[in-house]
């Protein structure tokens, strides 16, 4: 199988879906000639033309509203928000309108759009190029939220997202774009939205994560295996709908759970999973449900040491797992 990076997988998925279905089109800032600031749409304008690869004016509210309107007409837009940090002008259209459209029309108006959002930090982006925005969408029924960690998952899930008739928030961690390589099969495949993936089998503890931090969890699990502790690593891949079954099954097997994410700890995805496990797997627990997450500050700072202090990393996951193992 050929190896590729996350950004290449994203690009392949968009291209294949555009080839498959002429209703699929891309719009956003710099997505045309420049090929996107991260080059996710590189080359598309040459092959599909300006009518299906739209360089928009610099205005996110309209990017989202116009994508939504085109979806009403039956097209399948893939709007790009250049950085997650600039998603806020879209919130009226995305959380306010798109998320409520199917429910509010009793199913008469489906919303087949995928908004791609490069997110996350650890790249010296400071307060306005590092944001984790997933919780706001995770909290909103009517949106599907996908957050892959590997090229294989990114490609398969993005293709499913394009074919979905619901608004999908597709979160691509910027740091994984070129850092994470992996095998991707040639030819057509999709991965269903809403199914988590056990990325490493283990019997002693469960660690649940998604996006960049998933990789830190895998590295940490490797280290703990040298200490004789077998850690199971669950990659959520999709945040909404949440695959509660896979999480509960793993926790019931291991009795211990650590949740790791980069987003702020308070009210985050981890809090929801902790509540779920407390409600539905209480009698299986063999230690406190634990979280290792971003600090409760408004985004990680710019200075290198402050950014490190904010970010979960492999060492921090190892420490948290050891602490949990001691129970």
């Amino acid at each position: 199988m050929p190896e590729m990076t996350v950004i290449e997988a994203v690009r392949d998925a968009i291209r294949e879906e555009m080839e498959r279905d002429s209703k699929v089109f891309v719009l956003g800032e710099d997505v045309g000639k420049r090929g996107g600031v991260f080059l996710a749409t590189q080359g598309l304008i040459d092959d599909f033309g300006e009518s299906r690869v739209l360089d928009t004016p610099l205005a996110e509210a309209s990017i989202m509203g116009i994508a939504l309107g085109a979806a009403f007409r039956g097209l399948r837009p893939i709007p790009e928000v250049e950085f997650a940090d600039f998603v806020w002008p879209t919130i009226n259209q995305l959380i306010g309108e798109a998320a409520r459209t199917c429910y509010g029309t009793n199913g008469a108006v489906p919303v087949p759009l995928v908004v791609r959002i490069p997110y996350g930090g650890g790249i010296r982006g400071g307060l306005f190029h590092s944001q984790n925005v997933e919780t706001h969408f995770f909290h909103t029924p009517g949106l599907k939220v996908v957050a892959p960690a590997t090229p294989f998952d990114a490609k398969g899930l993005l293709k499913s997202a394009v074919r979905d008739n619901n608004p999908v928030v597709f979160l691509e961690h910027k740091k994984t774009y070129r850092l994470v390589r992996g095998e991707v099969p040639e030819g057509e495949y999709t991965i269903p939205i809403g199914i988590a993936d056990v990325k490493r089998q283990g019997s002693d503890m469960t660690v649940v994560s998604y996006g960049l931090t998933l990789h830190y969890c895998l590295e940490a699990a490797e280290q703990l295996s040298l200490e004789g502790v077998n850690v199971e690593v669950v990659d959520l891949r999709t945040l909404t709908p949440l695959d509660t079954e896979t999480v509960l099954e793993s926790v019931k097997k291991t009795g211990k759970l650590l949740i790791v994410h980069e987003d702020n700890i308070t009210g985050g995805v981890g809090a929801e999973i902790a509540a779920l496990v407390a409600e539905q797997a209480f009698e299986y627990l063999d230690g406190p449900v634990s979280r290792l997450c971003g600090l409760d500050v408004p985004t990680m700072p710019f200075a290198v040491n402050l950014e490190e202090a904010y970010m979960p990393d492999t060492d921090k996951v190892v420490q948290a797992l050891r602490k949990l193992a001691a129970y």
Partner: peptide, 25 residues
């Protein structure tokens, strides 16, 4: 911003400047 933000972003009140972010407009 004492190193929290992108270069020269935040506020320089002695010189009568506010620029909270690089979010366009």
């Amino acid at each position: 911003s004492n190193g929290r933000q992108f270069p020269l972003q935040g506020a320089d009140l002695p010189n009568k400047i506010i620029q909270i972010s690089n979010v366009v407009s």
